[in-house]
Design a protein around this nucleic acid. Structure first.
Lengths: 192, 192
DNA sequence: CTCGGAATTGGGCGACCGACCAAGACAATC
DNA sequence: GATTGTCTTGGTCGGTCGCCCAATTCCGAG
């Protein structure tokens, strides 16, 4: 049993290494050799556990993206637009913009324009994120919830992208502006 | 004189080829050889006209980005938030999301997280874009114009990024939502 | 203890990479 | 026509790439 489980562990270490290296060097600059070295295994193992380098990168990226999308929308239930927005932005502030997670998100979006499989997979994650936001916005009586969710999702990614260049673009700066985006008519009981 | 001007033309062709190839293949997948072939010159010319491959890519990207930023904000003067937003989104609709220009923008943002020089250069372009938006929003009496401009710029880039995955995220979908972002108190004379 | 098969190693294959350079091409100047 | 200086060519260098595979290690079933 040790052989199989150890194999599974190596697979996971390779996926973890892929996640790190995509962020650090960029999607198309990750090589099988650096990947194997980071995971602490021989160079040949990459093509033993995965069909190709692309397949490994894709699986790693999708896994990470899914986790990020889940976390960002985890606690939205039953919150007002104001509260929920604060939660989302607080979560977003965990990513400085040039950190591993942020880079990976953008790298993956880009790679998706050149890889059909990846594109399909990432579209599913984006749909999940939008769906979560839509149900939240609907319950919170925000007008035009579907379109608002789509724009909000795009804005969050855009803020993450710009934050890499401008570290001052943090939650406190963004929040008052985005609040206008989510204001039904402002009987949320919030001042100002 | 023909020699010098021809040299200048080759330089321009190389920059043009770089712009195309960054979009098509990604920043780190552009090689001196494909670059030279696309420009129709010998492989050695790249390092004659430019200090390095990075320098060539950087110059090409910044040039293109600057043009895009100029175009997007060219006609904003004296427009209401509603009119100006429509102009910006109409300009944005020229980019389907997976087109050369869109990809180049995102590719450059990403490459900037790993290249100091490029980062400085792209920061200048972003500052220009924000400045243009800020003066427009100030004149249009939109509250918190600086922060709003920063968020709007991020949103536009985010929409461009998401449009590569979802072609339906066009101006008409985004416009009514973003209008809320720019509404002072709605005495713009616009209904609803 | 002895197999059988999965996991792993390390090296090899052809291809491509960025950078560099000696040599040729060619227009302007004398 | 000879000379000068810029532009251009095509090839070479050491290195890295994705992918593949023979050989080796190792554990659990018999």
């Amino acid at each position: 049993m040790t052989a199989a489980t150890q194999g599974e562990q190596v697979r996971k270490r390779l996926l973890q290494a892929a996640t790190e290296l995509i962020s650090e060097r960029g999607w198309s600059a990750v090589s099988t050799r650096t990947l194997a070295q980071r995971a602490g295994v021989g160079p040949g193992l990459v093509h033993y556990h995965f069909a190709s380098l692309q397949a490994l990168l894709t699986e790693a990226a999708i896994q990470t993206l899914h986790t990020i999308a889940e976390e960002a929308t985890a606690q939205l239930d039953q919150t007002t637009p104001r509260e929920g927005l604060a939660l989302i932005l607080a979560d977003l502030d965990r990513y400085p913009g040039d950190d591993p997670a942020s880079c990976l998100v953008t790298e993956t979006y880009l790679a998706a324009t050149r890889d059909q499989d990846l594109r399909r997979a990432i579209t599913q994650v984006l749909d999940l994120l939008r769906q979560r936001l839509t149900t939240w916005l609907t319950a919170a009586a925000v007008p035009d919830p579907r379109a608002t969710a789509a724009v909000l999702a795009a804005t969050l990614d855009g803020v993450m992208l710009h934050r890499a260049l401008d570290p001052d673009l943090t939650g406190p700066t963004v929040e008052p502006v985005l609040r206008r985006l989510l204001t039904p008519d402002d009987h949320t009981g919030a001042p100002r």
